[in-house]
């Protein structure tokens, strides 16, 4: 026979009923977000789990440090220093490192939960089926953004302190902002694709391999399209025209690795190599994100059962 349930009764053996507040749905989603963000960088986990994310971060900082060092050695002409780098170009130039981080972090966030069977514990709690994938997605996006924010900040600080006038510092700051905007776009795009792939496999190694494979194997398509464009133009010296030019300008849509650089050039560079297709690049990026997010959300609706 059980004793009658009485809230607030303190039993001899020390079990105490919880009478404190229970917070809302925003709180649990936020908690899951923070937990996942920490997981992406190996925080709160074993030392082994910290090695890879922080190694990639260190590499990115190293690249940024070199760029800053080179920049400070460049000649100043007419009061304006030559540029060793563009803030908006930095994310695309290190996209392979971002990809590697993403390919490790996404399975760590999602595949691990699928594999360990921990999902039923989440979904038997007051968490909706949207909260979970949404928190995971935001965490991965934030992780990738922070990964790029660090080196971008280093680039900015390094360049700002080697400027001799305030207007130049302001100029650098604007560039920094542009770099962050491109970093954000890359973070959203990479995170969405990697999260979808990882949510389909419970095996982290498989998810990581497929993610890397997807990004790397689509990259040669860009080159192939360029060759096709060149062949189309008859290999002349007058540059590309007509259809050939169009193919060339659209070629970077073929891979997520290059699509962000297309947007960056359209937004911030005058010598754009994507012609009038900037909005299309942005639209395709948005489309890919949506196309990846919808099945991810649906996937967790199913898994929740």
């Amino acid at each position: 026979m059980s004793s009658p349930t009485a809230a607030g009764v303190i039993h001899d053996i020390g079990y105490r009923r919880y009478v404190g507040p229970r917070l809302g749905r925003e709180y649990t989603t936020w908690s899951l977000y923070v937990h996942s963000l920490r997981t992406a960088f190996g925080l709160g986990r074993s030392a082994v789990a910290k090695i890879f994310p922080w190694f990639v971060f260190a590499l990115l900082m190293f690249v940024a440090a070199i760029l800053v060092a080179v920049q400070s050695q460049l000649e100043t002409q007419f009061g304006i220093r030559e540029r060793a780098f563009e803030y908006w170009g930095y994310p695309s130039s290190v996209n392979i490192l971002v990809l590697l981080f993403c390919a490790i972090a996404a399975p760590e966030l999602v595949s691990r939960d699928l594999r360990s069977g921990v999902l039923p514990l989440y979904f038997s709690r007051p968490i909706t089926r949207w909260d979970y994938p949404l928190a995971k997605w935001l965490a991965l996006v934030s992780a990738l953004f922070l990964l790029l924010f660090g080196p971008e900040l280093l680039l900015f600080l390094g360049s700002a302190f080697s400027q001799d006038s305030m207007s130049n510092v302001w100029h650098e700051f604007l560039g920094f902002g542009r770099g962050l905007s491109i970093s954000a776009i890359m973070a959203v795009l990479f995170a969405s694709i990697a999260l979808l792939i990882s949510s389909l496999s419970g095996r982290r190694a498989v998810a990581a391999a497929i993610t890397v494979g997807f990004f790397i194997l689509t990259t040669p398509l860009v080159g192939i399209l360029e060759v096709v464009a060149f062949a189309q133009s008859g290999g002349g010296d007058n540059g590309l025209t007509g259809t050939a030019l169009t193919i060339s300008e659209l070629s970077r849509l073929a891979s997520p690795m290059t699509i962000v650089s297309g947007i960056a050039e359209w937004l911030y560079s005058d010598g754009s190599r994507i012609g009038p297709y900037g909005p299309l690049y942005l639209g395709v990026t948005f489309g890919v994100v949506v196309v990846c997010l919808v099945p991810t959300l649906l996937r967790f609706r199913k898994v929740a059962r």
């Binding site: 919880y18 507040p21 917070l23 709160g44 789990a49 939960d113 921990v118 039923p120 514990l121 709690r125």
Partner: peptide
Amino acid sequence: NDSLPPGLSAVEFVTHMARMSRLPK
């Protein structure tokens, strides 16, 4: 079934699950 992440300590995991049940930190 097995439903525990191997890489966390018990206290961290159970704390996390308590927060998922809306208990303050």
